[in-house]
Amino acid sequence: MSSTISNMPVLNIKREAELDKNFAKTIAKLAHGEQIYGCIQCGNCSSTCPLSPYMDYTPRKIIAMVKAGFREEVLTNKTIWLCASCYSCTVECPKGIKITDVMYALKREAIQNKIYPKRFTIPAMSKAFYDTVKSTGRSNEVALLMRYYMRTNIFSALSYVGVGLKLLKTGRLAIIEKQMKRKQDFKKMLKDSEN
């Protein structure tokens, strides 16, 4: 019996030393507000969230973990990437917490620290989108999806061939796009903001 117990992984205990005490402060600053400190853990965000059924932690738990300093767990999990920015949590939060902005802040923090789930498709889509806009100033669905599938799984694109052909047939794919005139200005501005 004692051997069974000794083989069990330690799951539900956290030492203070393992926490990042400044995490809440960092996120509050990045997420436009101190409101996160006022969270009463009512769970309205989790309940209204259309994606919470698929999340590792519900949004309510994420807020609690941010406040307590569970940096590692928060930044490496998929929950924050599943947020589709529908903002229903934000408009319904009784304490005015901008939860969508918190999710954005966490995504940025994860990317900056390179600890997001790398094989996960959603950050890859975000990066693809970012790069597409950066190069042309506008988003082009063909270019965007090419970038995306190159980064993830090129074969998974095959299942969308049908939809793609139909879009082509109905004239809903912009293969050649009108270019911006002052694209150089645009690129310069972007370069500045990345510094």
């Binding site: 309205n44 989790s46 309940s47 209204t48 919470s52 059924p53 519900t58 738990k61």
Partner: peptide, 11 residues
């Protein structure tokens, strides 16, 4: 009625 049962962590 939709709510998160926060004691359990499930909607």
């Amino acid at each position: 009625i939709r709510a998160e049962d926060t004691m359990i962590g499930m909607v």
